[in-house]
Amino acid sequence: MKTLLRATALAALLATAAAPAALAQAAPPAAESMFRATTFNLSAYGETKVAPDMATITLGVMTESPTAQAAMQANALKMRQVMEALRRGGLAERDIQTSNLSLNPQYRYAENQPPRLTGYQASNQVTVTVRDLARLGQAVDATVNAGANQVHGISFGLSDPTAAENAAREAAVKALAAKADLYARATGHRLVRLVTLSEGAGSYPVPPPMPLMVQATSFRKEMADTSVAPGELKVRVDVTGLYEAAR
């Protein structure tokens, strides 16, 4: 009887030990299966060009006076005129935002002498979003005529980049598929399936702002009947894909 029990226990132990090995042979891990497969890990990008439909411009008023109070009062008066000109030009309140307000003492420096206070300089700047580019030049002219003596730059953009980004996505996927097909043919394989697809952040470069820093007296002459050329923006989307291939 003892011999029979020992034989039964030994058989059960051997069966338990053999089960994992049999399962491993029947269903290899996914990572091992992928390692044995031929794959192409590729990246591509799609790009589309589109005309901007909005612009952002930063402009302001700078005034100087012997006292801080006088500098701020003069600045507030001119800035009020500039804001009224923007509103008359059809700009909504949501498109006008104060971006900088400062008051700085001004000194005169002489050799071997302590700095001497000569007055104060007040500056007030607003960032304006123009959604009708046909009125951009008129808006700049109106603010300059109203007293603005600082224009720091103009940049262009898209109010809704969705359509341009989707066009770039389609171009990116087509470029990725073409590259995968090329690699497959070059290596004597055929594409089986697209395993994974990931997208990078969509972006479109904005042309650098056009800096303009001139005095109000000459600025009015130079900016008369201002014309603006918005050009085009490039919208780009990057994608990465993993393809499985076979012979």
Rank of each mutant, 00 (worst) to 15 (best):
K2L: 06
L5G: 00
L10C: 01
L10G: 00
L13A: 08
L13G: 04
A15I: 08
A15T: 08
Q25K: 08
A30G: 09
E32N: 06
R36Q: 10
T48D: 09
K49L: 12
T56P: 00
T63L: 08
A68K: 09
Q73M: 13
Q73L: 13
A76H: 06
R80F: 01
M83V: 12
R88F: 06
G89Q: 05
E93S: 11
Q97V: 11
T98G: 13
S102F: 07
S102H: 07
S102N: 13
Y107A: 06
Q113M: 08
Q113K: 11
Q113F: 05
P114W: 12
P115R: 04
R116K: 10
L117C: 07
G119H: 02
V128W: 04
V130I: 13
R131M: 09
A134R: 15
R135M: 08
A139E: 09
A139M: 12
A142L: 12
V144M: 02
A148Y: 01
I154Y: 04
G157V: 12
L158R: 04
A167D: 13
A171V: 03
D181A: 14
Y183I: 10
A186T: 14
G188N: 11
L191C: 06
V192M: 14
T196W: 10
E199W: 01
A201E: 15
A201V: 14
A201Q: 15
P205L: 14
V206I: 14
M210V: 15
A216R: 11
E222G: 11
M223I: 14
V228W: 05
P230K: 01
K234C: 00
R236D: 02
Y243C: 02
E244T: 00
A245E: 06
